[in-house]
Design a protein around this nucleic acid. Structure first.
Lengths: 332, 332
DNA sequence: CTCCAAAAGTAAAACGTTTTCAATAGGCAA
DNA sequence: TTGCCTATTGAAAACGTTTTACTTTTGGAG
């Protein structure tokens, strides 16, 4: 039924070894042999079985990117960066989703333990730091976008704490004193870092933190709207709202608009991530941009280099972020 | 270096065959053997090499979903449906992106030809119908969301022509006579179908098609804005605009809003896909909803069933769509 | 014409599983 | 005791490659 290298060898009147050499472009093989093999391959429509090859070579040239879900549109750029970097080195990147389930994350990592892929990149780890550290000792793993406190693993991300600080500080610089924060109940490290940056900026400015101004929801726009509603209900309304993601911010902003708030004047809004839609909403959303493509590219380059290295690099690399100012903070 | 089944066998004082049987939960093995093997597995931290297993069994229990890019957020639900359906049958779904490059699509399909996956689902084929038809004869393939005229392959989609008809007809029902269409230069089958439905509705209503009212751009919001600009510049402005995607529609709507058009009154807007953001924009966008999750679930179920079947099903299945009416068409 | 090195080729081992086939042991009926 | 059946086990083949180790062929120098 299936055409194997043996069939090709027979058809080309050479040995399987010769066929293999032709297919792998080895030198020591005559022109006639090359021609004969190529003809046979074409005639039979042969394509080599990767399982046999991968087993023999103990490598697959495939890397698994593990994400929570494909919803977060800004993953897109990260993955593109990963793919580009991988492809130039002869690797493919496959994507799989955990649906926020640590068990499923472990199930996917099985592909790594079982040699079905050569390496794995975690973009939104649900497993704990200790577990991941342990695994990272034995397999080629890395993290991207998210770091994990106390986790010994190659990691490419941004300085989320500083980014939170910068965003908040910008609002302070515009004379705002009651700055709200909409964040998430689920404590991903990036949320924690951004929140800490927010607090540090307030303290540094001598304003201090008012817990009343912090709303804990989830990652949805709906949650952003609820957060905004809550904050607007306060006796002393906020004059600015920083959210840990654009989606949340858009939800919040939409709610404010519908309730007579003049966005960009009464209340300034600041998001995070610079997703594609954030400059489509009117008023356009000011936000923190992180270098998505570059993070993806970098993590793959370092991971592949680790695969070849004696001693793997388990450092954390923080790439620079930047602020994008648009109408929601009164800029143009 | 690597722990293999042989090491486990030695440690447990049994043969590799027995270890294999324990690992695969075969019945005919004594309790003592089971215990011994389990202990050895734990002690050594053994996990079986999938390459060996897959080679021997000639199956991987993995299915490849090939998409253009991860940007289109409504892929997300489709993939979730695929994953759920696959997982309940012991399969994993891996995702890979083509970046709109037919060559790269072929490269990815190589994983299928080379037995690295058991099946593949194309969500946005760039290859031509003849090529795909030919491949579908020899491998387990399917298409989802997009169909391809004259392509003999299992396909799960919606009736895009009818959906375009329905959307246009709804606008006509609201008394609109100059209905614009913003579509794409690149002719994906769904675009063509939706455009044809649009035209049929106009003809059926005795209005007729005015080519001036059709703008051909790309899939971006920016392109939607340009299309809207173009249409507004006409001597006889449109009183409604149907776009073949929400992203385009949002771009168009945003442009209209900024230029003093009263959306939902002066001009009605109708989108397609019901992406997450389409109900967050103010005014909220009316749109065609397709059953994303269900399409994903269905295509996987049918594909897996094909894998077991004598004679594969190469039919096309069109799942029902629905219209969602919001503020952009004057509804609430 | 001989000899030798280089080139080109082959057979077989190896990768890590699963599975087939045969063998052993034990239990039970005759 | 013998014979037979069943339950458990193990040795070895098989999956499809790549690669090692070895053999044959070629061509050129002497």
């Amino acid at each position: 039924m299936n055409i194997t290298i043996k069939d090709v060898a027979k058809a080309a009147n050479v040995s399987v070894a010769t066929v293999s050499r032709v297919l792998n472009k080895k030198t020591n093989v005559s022109d006639e042999a090359v021609q004969a093999v190529k003809r046979a391959v074409d005639e039979l429509g042969y394509s080599p079985n990767f399982l046999g090859r991968d087993l023999r070579k103990s490598e697959t040239k495939r890397i698994l990117a593990i994400i929570a879900s494909t919803e977060q549109s800004f993953y897109s750029e990260v993955l593109r960066g990963m793919q580009d970097a991988a492809y130039t080195q002869g690797y493919d990147v496959l994507i799989a989703t955990t649906r926020d389930d640590p068990e499923h994350e472990m199930h996917l990592l099985n592909m790594l333990f079982s040699k079905a892929v050569d390496g794995a990149v975690l973009l939104a780890p649900k497993l704990d730091a200790a577990t991941i550290s342990e695994l990272a000792k034995r397999f080629h793993m890395a993290m991207c976008l998210e770091r994990l406190e106390g986790c010994e693993i190659l990691c490419v991300t941004i300085d989320n704490e500083q980014a939170g600080y910068d965003a908040t500080n910008l609002l302070i610089g515009k004379g705002r004193k009651r700055i709200g924060l909409i964040t998430t109940k689920v404590r991903s490290q990036s949320s924690i870092d951004r929140e800490n940056g927010y607090k540090r900026a307030l303290v540094d400015a001598g304003i201090g933190v008012d817990e009343e101004l912090i709303y804990y929801g989830d990652y949805s726009a709906e949650s952003g709207a609820e957060g905004c509603e809550e904050l607007l209900r306060l006796d002393e309304r906020p004059d600015a709202i920083f959210s840990i993601s654009d989606t949340i911010s858009i939800g919040a902003m939409t709610y404010a608009l519908q309730h007579g708030v003049e966005v960009g004047k009464d209340i300034l809004f600041f998001g995070f991530d610079n997703i594609a839609y954030s400059h489509m909403f009117i008023p356009r959303l000011s936000t923190v941009e992180q270098p998505c493509y570059l993070q993806g590219k970098t993590v793959i380059e370092k991971l592949i280099s680790n695969m070849k290295a004696e001693e793997p690099d388990r450092g954390t690399y923080k790439l620079p972020h930047s602020l994008i100012l648009r109408e929601s903070t009164g800029d143009k």
